[in-house]
Amino acid sequence: MTTRRAFIRTSGTIAGVLSLSSTSIIALAPARAWALELDALTTVQGQTLLLLTRHIFPHDTLDDAVYALVVKDLDTAAADPHVAKLLVDGINSLDATTDGKWLDLSSERQLQIVESIASDPFFEKVRSTAVVSLYNNELAFAHFGYEGSSFEKGGYLNRGFDDLDWLPPPPVEASPQP
């Protein structure tokens, strides 16, 4: 069908390889290479949103694969034409304010431009999506050391709820034995 073809042509893919330093994440991943197919956004748009998210919530050792989850949620939201326009116009505005493509600029210059748009609805859309999507996933849990759902593992009662040993233990009057 032609509509389907047109659709495929406008959509993109972003891809990457898990860095070897992401050991906690590699343990969860089926393979080191990852790819994300986009429905509404082009490859360059996806790459731009990924890098923008890295500027908004910069974690130097957090793999791109996790940032890609934010792009995925933005791409899903862009099924709504209003959101798609907000994102596409926003990406264009990043490019418009400069001497060239925002993606090609130095990191310092990119950040300056991000700061200049920080009160725009586009920025807020990306920030408010990322503030949840970036941290609410198993890969981020593994990276930052959060253990997530615990009920099925019997809670933390026998899994270190009180294993901190770099401070003296409180007396039993203050903290009774389990």
């Binding site: 933390y156 270190g160 709820f161 009180d162 294993d163 901190l164 401070l167 003296p168 233990p169 409180p170 009057e173 203050a174 903290s175 009774p176 034995q177 389990p178």
Partner: peptide, 27 residues
């Protein structure tokens, strides 16, 4: 009914409380 056992967050809280002179910290 006995108090609950303190978790790690409590241990930090308790030790800090002691240092600044709060003597009534418990679970």
């Amino acid at each position: 009914i006995p108090g609950l056992p303190g978790n790690n967050n409590f241990k930090v809280f308790y030790n800090g409380a002691k240092r600044v002179g709060y003597d009534d910290c418990h679970t």
